[in-house]
C-alpha cells in the first residue's frame, strides 16, 4: 500500500508516527556516544528495533540489551537469538546471576512479586548498564554468547515505552534525564518543543530516549502488519483459545482469551474494542501490588 503515490498524497497516522520515531532515534545516535537499546523481545521493542533499521537504512549502529530474568518464556529466547543471527545484531544479555543462584526470587517464595522485579530486572539493568556486572555478548563467529568482564558504561538508553500503556508512562518525555541512581523526577522535567530535546547533560546524568511514546497498542500491531515485522509466536493463539497480549516472566504473566492466530486477526480483534476497557498490562501481576506498582517500579529505574 505504500506506493510512491500514496506517500506523495497524504501521510497516514503510521507514517507520521514512524517519521517521528526515526527522527528521535537519529537525534539520540548523533548526540550520545555510549548508546544502547533495550530489547525486551516484546512487540513494542521489536517495532523499535525495526524503526532503528528504518532510521539507519538497514543498519543497527548500537548494541541491543536484553535483561534475562531466567524466567522468560523459552520461546522468547529462541526467537531473540534467531533474529540476532539473521540481522547480525550486536546483542548483549545481562542477568542477576547471584540472586538466581541464591534463589532470591518470587517463584522461589523468598520475595514479593514487586521485589522480584526490582531484583531480577531493575537491579540487573542498573549494573549491566554501568558495566559493573559481567555481560554476555553474542559472538557471531562462534555462534554463541561470550562473557565480557568489563564493558563500557552506557549513558544513553533507548526504551520502547508507550504513553497509552499506563498512567505514569503518559508523563514521560522523549528524552528523559535520570540521575546517577536512575531517579526520575516527574515534576521537574525538561521542556520539549519544535523537535528540540534535552541533549546536553551534566556528567553523571543518564538519558532515557522514548521514541515510541505516542504509539498506541493498535498502532503497533498495524505497523507490524504493514511492515511484515517478525514477532514471537506467543502473541498468537496456537489452538488453545489463548494468547499473550503483553510478555513478561512466565510466573507473573497470564495470557488473554483470544483466538487471534495472525497479525491481521489481532488488528481486527483490537479494532472491535474487545480490549478497549481492559488494561494492556492486566496480565502482569506485579502492576497490581502496592496500589501503583508500576509507578513505584519506574521511580526505581524500571522501564
Amino acid at each position: 500500500m505504500n506506493t510512491t503515490e500514496t506517500i506523495g498524497q497524504s501521510s497516514s497516522t503510521l507514517d507520521r508516527l514512524e517519521a517521528q520515531s526515526v527522527h528521535l532515534l537519529r537525534e539520540a545516535y548523533r548526540e550520545f556516544k555510549s548508546l544502547v537499546m533495550l530489547w525486551s523481545i516484546g512487540k513494542d521493542s521489536t517495532v523499535l528495533l525495526w524503526l532503528t533499521r528504518k532510521a539507519f537504512f538497514g543498519h543497527v549502529p548500537f548494541p541491543l540489551l536484553h535483561i534475562d530474568t531466567g524466567y522468560k518464556i523459552p520461546e522468547m529466547i529462541r526467537y531473540r537469538d534467531e533474529i540476532v543471527r539473521q540481522w547480525r545484531l550486536n546483542m548483549i544479555v545481562g542477568q542477576n546471576v547471584r540472586a538466581l543462584a541464591e534463589k532470591r526470587t518470587f517463584p522461589d517464595g523468598r520475595l514479593t512479586r514487586l521485589d522480584c522485579c526490582k531484583t531480577l530486572k531493575t537491579e540487573a539493568l542498573k549494573y549491566t548498564l554501568s558495566g559493573e556486572w559481567p555481560r554476555l555478548r553474542f559472538d557471531h563467529q562462534a555462534g554463541r554468547y561470550v562473557e565480557e568482564a568489563h564493558g563500557e558504561a552506557f549513558t544513553g538508553v533507548i526504551v520502547g515505552v508507550r504513553a497509552d500503556e499506563e498512567g505514569s508512562r503518559s508523563k514521560e518525555r522523549y528524552f528523559s534525564p535520570r540521575d546517577r541512581d536512575n531517579d526520575w523526577n516527574a515534576g521537574d522535567q525538561p521542556p520539549e518543543l519544535w523537535h528540540q530535546y534535552k541533549t546536553d547533560f551534566a556528567p553523571g546524568t543518564h538519558i532515557r530516549v522514548h521514541p515510541l511514546l505516542d504509539w498506541t497498542e493498535l498502532d503497533i500491531w498495524e505497523y507490524i502488519a504493514r511492515e511484515a515485522i517478525p514477532v514471537t509466536s506467543l502473541y498468537f493463539d496456537r489452538g488453545e483459545g489463548r494468547r499473550y497480549r503483553s510478555l513478561g516472566c512466565h510466573p507473573c504473566t497470564k495470557p488473554v482469551v483470544s483466538t487471534a492466530r495472525t497479525v491481521d486477526e489481532i488488528v481486527a480483534e483490537l479494532r472491535t474494542g474487545k480490549f478497549a476497557n481492559v488494561a494492556e498490562r492486566a496480565g502482569r501481576a506485579q502492576d497490581k501490588e502496592d496500589g501503583g506498582g508500576l509507578e513505584t517500579l519506574r521511580r526505581a529505574g524500571y522501564m
Partner: peptide, 30 residues
C-alpha cells in the same frame, strides 16, 4: 531518496524522516 523496506521513491515531502544521496562528493557537517 533512500529508505529501508519501502517502495523505491523519487520524492520526499514535509514530515518525511528521509535520507538523500547527492550527485557530487560533498563534505558538510550536520
Amino acid at each position: 531518496v533512500e529508505a529501508f523496506n519501502a517502495a523505491p521513491r523519487s520524492q520526499a515531502f514535509a514530515g518525511d524522516a528521509s535520507g538523500f544521496t547527492l550527485e557530487t562528493q560533498l563534505y558538510i557537517r550536520p
